[in-house]
Amino acid sequence: MRLPLKSGWLLVLPFLLLVGGLFLGPILNVLWISVTEPAPGFGNYAQLGSSDTLRRILWTTLRVCVMCTAFSVILGYSIAYAMVHATGPAQSRMLGLLLISFWISVLVRTFSWLMLLGRNGVVNSTLDALGIISAPIPFMRNELGVLIGMVHYMVPYAVLPIFAAMQSIDGRVVQASRSLGGSGAQTFWRIYLPMTKPGVVAASLVVFIINLGFYVIPAVLGGGKVLMVAEYISVQVLITLQWGTAAMLAAILLFGVLALMFLMSRFMKLSTVFGGART
């Protein structure tokens, strides 16, 4: 082959320049702002120790993200398990539904949840008509609503890595366990579940990472009552113009995400996780 190395790198160059100049450089600039505005030093970071608001926001973000990750991964595990054990046509239909839900815009989903979960929304009026409740359940402007919206968005992201891990399991291992006298439950808990651990870990990490920076759903369904990091950053930048605080929070968010990403790369390839996905 003629000059394979050189011509290969030449093709990579435009993308590299684009990402370097328009993305990595400006992100480093944001990190720089976090230690230079409004005054040089670590004043912005010191706010974490002094400001109750900031601590509450970080705590809310973590709490919501952990709960959302747990629910998404458990529901995702169930779907992935059913998909792996389904016959060909059923499996394609399930995968189709899953991918379509991936592709539905977050704005469309958020709008629909507003219609469904409001005081006079579909869910409350149905429950009322059935006589199950006497007063409307408050689904919105609280963590319940945010959680419903986020879990609904994240389940497909959880399914794909778990599904990939389950597909690589040799079915004969399960048969061996059963023929050696293991019960169905024992086989699942002691053989199957541990073997799918890489998928579960990767799924948990990817869901958690996307949740950490989630903006649209918490902002709308939380209605200002469930303030998470991304929404707070946008308020600081667009309304109160406090870039220093915003940049500090962005830096914490970024390092958190990158650390988790590094952890995840040890369990599963990035392209497997984002393969059929969209962000």
Partner: peptide, 15 residues
């Protein structure tokens, strides 16, 4: 793909 969109938004806006 990995960096939260809100951080990308800040970076672009400042640039």
């Amino acid at each position: 793909l990995v960096v939260p969109p809100i951080i990308a938004a800040m970076a672009f806006s400042r640039l």
